Amino acid sequence: MKLKIINSDKILYEEDVFYLKAPGLNGYFQILENHTSFISILKKGNLKFKNKKKIKKNLNIEKGILKVNKNFIIILL
């Protein structure tokens, strides 16, 4: 699935990933391939994901919005 993380200035990350773990308002949640479509508000925390080369990545965030649709995740920070 595709992951794209952007802020008001630039694209921070854009690559295929195996999974994403994100800090939602009610706690962390995980997204895997073929996840149902939804939108979530993100709170301060750590985005964790693994790319297709099996390299784990972490990104600290303050807040944001996440949208999942048809194996495409977009995060606006």
Rank of each mutant, 00 (worst) to 15 (best):
I75E: 05
L66S: 09
S8Q: 09
F38Q: 00
G27R: 05
K48H: 10
Y19K: 07
L59D: 02
I39G: 03
V17Q: 03
G64E: 04
K57T: 04
I55R: 08
I74R: 10
L42Y: 13
D9M: 07
I55Q: 11
L59Y: 13
I55A: 07
Y28K: 12
Y28L: 03
N34G: 02
K44M: 07
M1A: 13
Y19N: 13
K10L: 14
D9S: 14
F49Y: 15
K44C: 05
I55T: 10
P23W: 06
L3P: 00
D16I: 03
N46R: 11
L25T: 10
N34E: 12
N51Q: 09
N69I: 12
G45L: 09
S40A: 15
I31L: 14
L3G: 03
G64R: 05
K10I: 10
K56N: 14
K56F: 15
K56G: 00
P23K: 13
D16M: 14
G45Q: 08
D9P: 00
N58R: 08
I6L: 15
I75R: 05
G24N: 07
S40H: 04
K21I: 15
H35Q: 09
F38P: 03
L42F: 11
S40R: 07
N71E: 05
K2V: 00
S8T: 12
L59A: 02
V17P: 13
L77A: 08
H35M: 02
S40Q: 09
S37L: 07
L66N: 09
E14W: 01
E14F: 05
I65M: 14
L76D: 03
E33C: 06
G27T: 05
H35R: 06
I31T: 07
E14P: 01
I65F: 15
Y28N: 14
L32G: 05
K53H: 08
I74T: 11
K54T: 11
N71D: 15
N58Q: 14
L25M: 12
S37M: 13
N58V: 05
N51F: 08
A22H: 06
I41G: 10
G24M: 08
G45I: 08
I65W: 12
K52D: 01
N51V: 09
D9A: 12
K52G: 00
K50L: 11
I31F: 01
G27Y: 10
I41R: 12
I41M: 14
F72Y: 12
I41L: 15
K52Y: 06
L25S: 11
L3Y: 12
E15T: 04
Y13N: 02
S40F: 01
F29H: 02
K67I: 07
Q30M: 06
K44F: 01
K63C: 10
A22G: 04
H35T: 03
G24D: 09
I61Y: 09
S37V: 06
I74N: 11
L3V: 04
L25C: 06
K44G: 04
N58G: 02
I75K: 06
Y13V: 08
L42A: 11
T36L: 14
Y28E: 14
N51D: 15
G24V: 08
S37P: 09
K57I: 07
N26V: 07
Y13P: 00
N7E: 04
K67D: 03
P23V: 06
K63D: 13
I39H: 02
I41N: 15
N26H: 12
Y19I: 04
E15C: 03
G24C: 10
N7G: 04
